[in-house]
Design a protein around this nucleic acid. Structure first.
Length: 453
RNA sequence: GUGAUUGUAGCUCAGUUGGUUAGAGCGCCUGAUUGUGGUUCAGGAGGUCGCCGGUUCGAACCCGGUCUUUCACCCCA
């Protein structure tokens, strides 16, 4: 019985036409990364579960895809837990591997594990899929590609600047209008500190992150719900109301945070980065956004987010500085900073706006019609001639009706069809048909080449 | 995890208050045209109406469950 084939929720197949476009995106991004001295690495799709667990917060743990142990995994598990149907606790007994949730944590693991083979500062890029057991929705998939660039082992803020420069360059090459939003965790920590809620930074940031979306009143309501005192919420108001240029915001902040050394350090970092970025004269606006929080709680300094200006789709790139991610795996004192381009969202944006240049194609340029065994053998040699000259060439593999072979060329968007039968073989010519104009003429291979090239 | 929403031919979609044999456009296949595609014309194939169960004399249509699609929330690229 033939069953209807399907793929898991939130995953997708990509057709050749789509892959050509996706590869254009990947190649563009990769090219820019390499131009800045980042080197590629790859890590396994699956990691040991204890590498992943606890790195993304409670919510992140829930979104991890876990892999069932091989063999008779139930025989070794605790009967009482099984009987109690306690999924959370039974998980540790039946699963010890999980699919990677992002590329940053596996990278941190990689750095620690290979610390003797790599030279700090270590600049790497990594383009691989990640998996999250989320409910799919607009711009959100369960399997998607991230394109990460990170540098570890360097505290210099020049790295932050360089990353912004990379963002600018990638999106200029892809022709997507974006804005870079910049914030700093130290500033957020300072704010939490001076309003007297130092240990509630995550609650505060998660709430104010929604300011754009739900408005001030609802943010205040949520802050209250999350257990902040009315006094603290009151003190927060002037900060939420901050406006003006980046410079003006920084000025106000340095006053507001004057009692918080951490906060002031954040302001100083932001100032330094923004000053350097200014001198670069980028196309992309860089905006200081205090409401930018970002979920991942391993960030300790700069936080970035990039939003597309012409398409409503959440952020298409994000990242930040993490001072001690490798510490969890036993290597202290190595700071990292990096960003991640969300390839699938970029793909969605590019598709929606049809931003691909016409040159994005991998179509065959020349098809040899197959008239029979003898003719095909002759065409094999001719095809090699054209391929050696850089023409994407194929020979139809079967002796099929002309109509079928022509329509194959038509559907594949092949511009030229070569017909080589007995006459052509004898005269060492080929009959070349231009599928767009419909014209055809009999030529020597060299003449044909100049027409195709 | 919470709340909605979708599912009929390969694709996009019609399908009346529940009533005989479920339709259209596009695509596909064959021929008109044995060395000529895209246009035209003639013909043809293709459907357990997502799946399981229930109500009914009778279900694509009503009810329940389940899977899937899309969307919002939580969270996030």
């Amino acid at each position: 019985m033939a069953q209807k084939p399907s793929i898991p929720k939130g995953t997708r197949d990509f057709t050749p036409a789509e892959m050509v476009r996706r590869n254009f995106i990947f190649d563009t991004i990769k090219g820019v990364f390499q131009m800045y001295g980042y080197m590629p690495i790859e890590t396994p799709a699956m990691e040991n579960l204890d590498t992943l667990l606890g790195k993304y917060g409670e919510e992140g743990d829930k979104l991890l895809f876990k892999i069932l142990n091989s063999g008779d995994f139930l025989s070794k598990s605790d009967a009482a837990l099984l009987a109690a149907r306690d999924s959370n606790r039974i998980t540790g007994q039946i699963s010890e591997k999980g699919l990677r949730y992002d590329l940053t944590v596996p990278f941190a693991r990689f750095v620690v594990q290979h610390q003797n083979e790599i030279t700090l500062p270590f600049k790497r890029y990594q383009i691989q899929p990640v998996w999250r057991a989320d409910r799919p929705q607009k711009g959100r998939y369960r399997e998607f590609f991230q394109c990460d660039v990170d540098v570890v082992g360097s505290d210099g803020l020049i790295n932050e600047v360089e990353l912004i420069q990379i963002v600018d360059e990638v999106y200029r090459k892809l022709n997507i209008r974006v804005v870079v939003k910049l914030n700093n965790r130290k500033v957020l920590a300072g704010i939490a500190e001076i309003i007297g809620e130092a240990d509630r930074m995550v609650d505060i940031t998660v709430a104010i992150d929604k300011l754009d979306k739900i408005g001030l009143d609802k943010v205040n309501a949520e802050l209250h719900e999350r257990g902040l005192t009315p006094e603290a919420i009151d003190k927060l108001q002037p900060i939420l109301a901050l406006s003006g240029s980046n410079g003006e915001k920084l000025q106000s902040l340095s006053q507001i945070l004057s009692q918080s050394p951490t906060g002031l350090k954040g302001v100083e970092e932001l100032t330094t980065v923004l000053k350097m970025v200014d001198t670069l004269k980028l196309h992309t606006p860089v905006e200081l956004d205090l409401t930018l929080a970002r979920g991942l709680n391993y960030y300790t300094g700069a936080i970035f987010e990039v939003k597309a200006l012409d398409v409503e789709i959440g952020s298409i790139t994000g990242g930040g500085r993490y001072d001690d991610l490798t510490g969890i795996f036993g290597l202290k004192g190595v700071s990292g900073v990096g960003i991640s381009f969300g390839a699938d969202r970029i793909f969605d944006v590019m598709n929606q706006m049809n931003l691909y240049p016409d040159t994005v194609t991998a179509a065959t340029q020349l098809l040899f019609v197959n008239f029979g065994e003898k003719e095909a053998a002759h065409c094999l040699g001719l095809a090699t001639f054209f391929r050696n000259k850089g023409v994407r060439t194929e020979l139809y593999p079967d002796v099929a009706k002309m109509k079928k072979q022509m329509s194959y060329a038509d559907k594949k968007g092949i511009r030229f069809v070569a017909m080589v039968g007995e006459d052509e073989i004898n005269n060492n010519k080929i009959t070349l048909k231009n599928m767009v104009s419909g014209e055809q003429q009999t030529l020597t291979p060299e003449e044909a080449l100049s027409l195709i090239g």
